[in-house]
Amino acid sequence: MASAERPPVILRSLDLCSRAIRLARKIRSDVVSLLDSYVERQGLDKNISLDGVDSMPTAAVEHWSELTEAERLGNNLKAYRIFQTLLAEVLEDQRTHLTPTDTNFHESIQSVMLQVSALASQLEELLMLLEHSVPAREEVEGTADSTSRSMFEKKLRGLKVLQELAQWSVRSVKDLHHVTKHSHSSSTVHVSHQ
């Protein structure tokens, strides 16, 4: 029986998905260790209630299974764009106000920032490859008044950014696996039609 030849687009998207999954997993592990050093350096307690800290993309979503591929990837992209801005704010707060001499710590934040930016680019490429519209860039809420925040609010906000990012990276792995499965099944249908 002739081996099924997948269309190049599908192959390309499967490759992109697997790379994005690996990157999301890397972000996940880096953020978890960054969380530990963040909590220690800010003198915080990991279990502190952060309900009061808002304007952040939350990973939790209802009817996850009913999301379309475009929604799945689009939501991920919007989230990581926001996290790019939020992480830049966290880094600035640490450099300028809270841990100005701790350059190693700053580098670990910066490393996560770069990975988030890379993941956003991969998601954008994936959306275009799968011929979905790429969501427009939005002004990130809450960053405009960062200077008026107290030091305690800055500390809590940074903690929440990292916690939410950790959860988003888990969700992204699930979303991307879902997209991969979808790509697999649609490529199989494609083969059976020939």
């Binding site: 350096r41 915080l44 502190i48 309900d51 809270l98 100005p100 030091m151 305690f152």
Partner: peptide
């Protein structure tokens, strides 16, 4: 204090925490 200051927490009921440094 540490470089990032010492936190003062006010833990509230029913929920919530406020603080200063």
């Amino acid at each position: 204090s540490e470089s990032s200051g010492t936190n003062i927490w006010c833990s509230l009921l029913p929920y919530g925490v406020e603080g200063t440094v």
